[in-house]
Design a protein around this nucleic acid. Sequence first.
DNA 1: CTTGAACCTATAGCGACTGTAGAGAGTAGA
DNA 2: TCTACTCTCTACAGTCGCTATAGGTTCAAG
Lengths: 148, 148
Amino acid sequence: MTDGMTIGRVAKAADCNIQTIRYYEQIGLIPAPRRSSGNQRLYDASAVRRLAFIRHARELGFPLSAIRDLISLVDHPAQSCEAADRIATAQLHAVEGRIRRLTALRGELERMVEECKGGRVADCRVIEVLSDHSLCETPDHGAPALAE
Amino acid sequence: MTDGMTIGRVAKAADCNIQTIRYYEQIGLIPAPRRSSGNQRLYDASAVRRLAFIRHARELGFPLSAIRDLISLVDHPAQSCEAADRIATAQLHAVEGRIRRLTALRGELERMVEECKGGRVADCRVIEVLSDHSLCETPDHGAPALAE
DNA sequence: CTTGAACCTATAGCGACTGTAGAGAGTAGA
DNA sequence: TCTACTCTCTACAGTCGCTATAGGTTCAAG
């Protein structure tokens, strides 16, 4: 019943689309499953769990490289937590940085939207702010560098 | 003086790297500038302003498609502000969703790092959370829609 | 006139997918 | 059994927003 699920069923169960599953297999993030006589992939329940893990971590912003590391921890649950601690701490710092930048950004966007009340574009606060960096008071000194 | 700037000077002035400028030209986000006798691009001050506008919007997380729309508004300043407001509001919602999700994640990561003091991976909180979506209280269900 | 920095084009690569084409596999009804 | 239809297969191109490289040309200083 749980054994021998086709890729479509797994995709639904793990809320992950089919191409993405094949992509994860291709880059070695999940193991290649066994095949039916007609060469179709057949998964068991553990594949669904792993995919759900990956998708959830992705939704939370972990890059695949970090997920790869986390998976190798999951696969060796008896060892010390140290590596997981390191990964999580690094991830925590990254997340904190992103929150800081996004919070500054939210303030600016709120101000823009607030002041843009049906005027004409010529007076549009949104465009004014975007045009002049000095109008924006990022508490973050350097370049916000949205990326990452 | 402001007229006839080479791409390198413009890049410095607008805090935007050279390849990116050529890329923006290629995709039609900025107009192709005139050229010197030796085929080098020569920009005027308006190009710097436009690039600064684009870079600033990018830093704020606007996708190029939204920026394209904003530019067309800037180029037609007599019309209503409504479209700019819509774009900025969508971006604001996207940013708020991201902050919510990241804040939830930060909580989990903090707890994990806290509880991960020489224990074993088998008991690791973050892995547990990542494995089971129901443990996490993200108020935001859906996709970010706009940008990043 | 020579050197070296800045510029040119064209192309490939990144991460993390998504979409397509054209073929084969599996299933349900007549 | 035949047909119709859906699902899956591989392989590869495209997405976004750049960044990097290769191999050449132009410009400005000494």
